[in-house]
């Protein structure tokens, strides 16, 4: 027994190393389970306020561009408001991405991106709004030029989310012109492009076709612009197109975004639960 202790004591460095590595790897493999590691991400107070104060300095350099974007969005909204109420709610590039048709269904919370990346295989966004502002997990994030991501972790005054540029999730989307459903996935290469999967060959495709959100999940409203078809081909021996989508959102220059709150989300979730229970019953 004593010799065992002596052995452990002499090699404590190795055992300490193994223990710390196990802890680290445990954290790596549990990270998909976001709720468990509530405080160990960029939405915590320390990381959030560091990013926030740094961003409050750096954001001055982007003011001119942000102003121009806001002015353009205002102008678009105003002209739409005056001319045609029944216009479909999708606009082309650089236009307001979404105006709710039924204003009681969705609510928007304005937020600022205080940290963001585009060059990692899994990119995340940190926002300067948190629980006290009404942000909740599973809410969509959109900007004036298109979809941005989804909120995953919310703490008191900051929140973080997955950006579209994250291979860990995909967006339910459709072709605007005929409603064919597909899912949008980022391949980890270029921050300007993503792949659209599951569009079958019988759908007629053209370069420049607009891709919008399907509205089949409670995260995004229907019809928020995602991007346009940049290239496509029909791989031999398969049933679905290879489609490259040019994203309308410029992820390298994100500043102000809106968090989408679906006011009926509880009802939708309740219904989904009911359906699942019914299926299990049968």
């Amino acid at each position: 027994m004593r010799s065992l202790f002596r052995y452990l004591f002499r090699n404590y460095g190795f055992f300490l190393f193994i223990i710390l590595e196990i802890v680290a790897l445990f954290l790596v493999f549990n990270y998909n389970n976001y709720q468990k590691v509530k405080y160990l991400n960029s939405s915590n107070v320390v990381a959030g306020s560091v990013y926030n104060s740094f961003n409050s300095v750096v954001s001055y350099f982007a003011l001119a561009r942000v102003n121009a974007e806001l002015a353009a969005e205002n102008a678009k909204l105003r002209s739409r408001f005056q001319t045609d109420e029944s216009e479909p709610m999708i606009f082309e590039n650089k236009a307001p991405a979404f105006v709710p048709s039924d204003s009681t269904l969705f609510q928007f919370i304005s937020a600022k991106v205080i940290n963001n990346s585009v060059n990692k295989p899994f990119n995340y966004i940190t926002l300067n709004k948190g629980r006290s502002d009404g942000v909740k997990p599973d809410q969509g994030i959109i900007s004036a030029s298109g979809i941005v991501g989804v909120v995953t972790n919310v703490l008191e005054s900051y929140s973080m989310g997955l950006s579209v540029l994250n291979q860990r999730w995909s967006v339910s989307s459709k072709l605007k012109k005929n409603g064919s459903l597909g899912s949008l996935l980022w391949d980890g290469e270029d921050y300007r492009f993503a792949e659209l999967m599951e569009i079958p060959f019988h759908v007629e495709l053209q370069l420049g076709d607009t891709i919008v959100t399907s509205g089949y999940s409670s995260i995004f409203p229907e019809g928020v612009i995602i991007g346009t078809v940049n290239a496509f081909d029909k791989p031999a021996g398969e049933n679905y197109y290879n489609i490259t989508v040019k994203l309308t959102t410029n992820f390298k220059a994100l500043s102000y975004v809106e968090v989408v709150e679906n006011l009926h989300v509880d009802e939708i979730k309740e219904l989904e639960k009911l359906i699942q229970e019914n299926e299990r019953g049968n």
Binding site: G13, F14, F17, L20, E21, V23, A24, L25, F26, L27, V28, F29, N30, Y31, V37, L40, N41, S42, N44, V46, A47, V50, Y51, N115, S117, K120, F122, Y124, M160
Partner: peptide, 22 residues
């Protein structure tokens, strides 16, 4: 771990730095 928290990559920096420290 500190860098992990800031970059939302829990555990990977901690594993790498522990290894080089050893």
């Amino acid at each position: 771990l500190t860098v992990d928290v800031f970059s939302n990559t829990l555990g990977i920096h901690a594993a790498a730095t522990t290894f080089i420290a050893y």
